[in-house]
Structures are given as structure tokens and as C-alpha cells.
């Protein structure tokens, strides 16, 4: 009996050690990949260190208070490097490995205000800052306060990292469902965590659409003569989950939606929704009923 237990214990120990070694090797590989994106210098700026790597368990050490956003987009690893040049602001670069391109896209779009593709698959620049995403990486480069030289160095560094990442990644499939007509591209938001449901306006405090890790959601604004409707599409893992989310939404938001798919709300805008197979699509704040229903009808490929 003791012998059996010992053998079992021994086997378990080997399995645990193998798993641990595997995790370590994977982490090292990620670290090395992230390091390979970073040059030793940019213009006159020299790297202060080889790059500090953070994981899910210690990201908060680097971005205290801000880690949860990245964790909610399934963050995997990050490298931080600082470049210094006398008389110039430090250049701080953070490259986030988000595991999958869709997560890098999601975290990039989270606070995007403008449409720009100077770097990566989408970029945004404001004085002293460049953000972009490419493949599964989200890149942030900062230098405050901006100088003429630091601005040039920021752009050069962004270009270098863009090139070293190499390949583009795929957009989340759910994005392709957004109708193009009247779409305001900079307003697309992609997420898999319910807390981002209220990105444009307050929909609900609780998770009334039952958005879980495997639920893919997209929000976008549509322009109708300066008035903006918001389209939300959530894609669940199966039809039952979608149905359950539909029922919860109706019960929590407005039970009248059980008998009418389109309703005029108290602010005179229209809400309209439909469930198709494992997806739920809802239009909020449409100026007219026809606009709400037409937008909903033009959501592509809702049948899987």
C-alpha cells in the first residue's frame, strides 16, 4: 500500500515538475520574444536596462491601479524599457503580449478617439504618446513633455517595433458583422468582460447580458444626422446561453421587450433587439424605429 502511494506520489511530482518547467520555458520564450522587439538605442537615447518583464501576477507593480483593464483582456506578459538621453525626457515603452490579436485589438480600441494606421494595424498619437497594436501585441510609447527630438525618436521607435513584430493578426471575427453604412469606425469597442458594456452610455450596472470570458461582444456607434445610435452584438458559446442572456436582459431591462422587439424609450429614442442562434444584437438610442430595425436587419451573418 505504502509502495503504491509512493509510486503515485512520485509520478505526480514528476508531472508537477514537468508542468512547472513547461510554464517556465513558455514564460522565458515570451520574454525573449518581447526583448527581440526592442532596440538598444533610438537616436541618442540609450536603453537604461534590458527590459523588465511582468506577468499576470505582478503587472500591478508596473501600472498600479491600471492592471485590471489589461487582465480583463486576457493579458499574458509585458516588457517595459526606458531609454534615456541627457536633456531630453525619458522614453518609456511598454509592449503587452495579449495572447491573441483580438485581445490586443480590444485593449487598443478601448480608449481610441481617432482613426490612424501610421503604425501597426491601428495607431493613435497625441503629444508625447504613441499607441498601436499589431498581431497579439499592444504597444505604448511615452515621453513627457514632448520635444521635437523626442517626437522624432518616438516615431522611429514605433516604426522599429512595428517592423520587428513582423506580421499582422486577425481582427475579431465578430467585427465583420458590423454593418458599414453609417458606422463611425473609431467607435468600435470589442470586449469579453461585462464591465466594458457601459463604454458609451450606461446600460446596466450588473451583468444583465451574462457576458462571460467566452462571450465576444462588439459595440459601435452609427451616425444618423448627427444623432448616434449604438449597436451591441454579443456572441455566446451556444444557443442556450444566448437564450438565457436574452431572457435576463428582457427581465432586467424592460419586460415589454418580450412581446415587442422594438420599443420607444422614455427619451424618445428606440431600442430594438433580436436573438439569432448564439448571438444577441441590440440597437439602443436610434432616433427612429425604422433606423433601429434596419440597422438590426443589416447585422451580417447573425445565423451561424
Amino acid at each position: 500500500m505504502y509502495f503504491v502511494h509512493f509510486k503515485t506520489l512520485h509520478a505526480m511530482l514528476i508531472i508537477v515538475m514537468c508542468c512547472f518547467a513547461g510554464v517556465l520555458m513558455a514564460q522565458n520564450a515570451k520574454s525573449e520574444t518581447l526583448r527581440s522587439f526592442l532596440p538598444e538605442s533610438v537616436d541618442g537615447w540609450q536603453a537604461e536596462h534590458s527590459g523588465k518583464v511582468y506577468g499576470r501576477d505582478n503587472l500591478y507593480e508596473h501600472i498600479n491601479g491600471g492592471a485590471e483593464l489589461y487582465l480583463s483582456y486576457k493579458f499574458s506578459a509585458m516588457i517595459n524599457r526606458v531609454y534615456m538621453e541627457e536633456g531630453q525626457p525619458d522614453i518609456i515603452i511598454d509592449i503587452f503580449d495579449m495572447g491573441k490579436p483580438e485581445n490586443a485589438f480590444g485593449v487598443f480600441m478601448h480608449s481610441r478617439e481617432t482613426v490612424d494606421t501610421t503604425f501597426g494595424q491601428g495607431s493613435e498619437s497625441v503629444p508625447g504618446m504613441i499607441h498601436f497594436w499589431r498581431n497579439r501585441y499592444f504597444v505604448s510609447i511615452l515621453a513627457y513633455p514632448q520635444t521635437e527630438a523626442s517626437d522624432a525618436a518616438l516615431k522611429k521607435l514605433a516604426k522599429t517595433v512595428h517592423n520587428r513584430i513582423g506580421k499582422d493578426g486577425l481582427l475579431p471575427q465578430i467585427i465583420t458583422r458590423l454593418p458599414n453604412k453609417n458606422l463611425i469606425p473609431s467607435t468600435i469597442r470589442y470586449f469579453t468582460h461585462h464591465v466594458w458594456l457601459n463604454s458609451y452610455f450606461f446600460i446596466a450596472e450588473e451583468n444583465i447580458l451574462q457576458i462571460e470570458d467566452a462571450t465576444h461582444c462588439v459595440l459601435a456607434k452609427y451616425n444618423y444626422d448627427q444623432k448616434k445610435a449604438v449597436l451591441l452584438i454579443c456572441q455566446y458559446t451556444d444557443k442556450e446561453q444566448a437564450r438565457s442572456a436574452r431572457d435576463r436582459f428582457i427581465a432586467s431591462y424592460n419586460p415589454q421587450l418580450e412581446v415587442q422587439n422594438s420599443l420607444q424609450e422614455e427619451d424618445d429614442t428606440w431600442i430594438s433587439f433580436k436573438q439569432d442562434m448564439r448571438s444577441l444584437a441590440i440597437v439602443f438610442k436610434a432616433p427612429h424605429r425604422q433606423q433601429a430595425e434596419k440597422l438590426l436587419q443589416s447585422v451580417t451573418n447573425l445565423e451561424e
Binding site: F201, I203, E205, I208, S252, E266, D267, F284
Partner: peptide
Amino acid sequence: NLTRRDFLKHTGQAS
């Protein structure tokens, strides 16, 4: 459990 509609019903504006 608050929703946008709670505010619309009570104030006429959800903003």
C-alpha cells in the same frame, strides 16, 4: 440592479 431604463423612467434622461 440599475439599468439605463431606470433613469429614463425617473428623469427622462439616461446621460
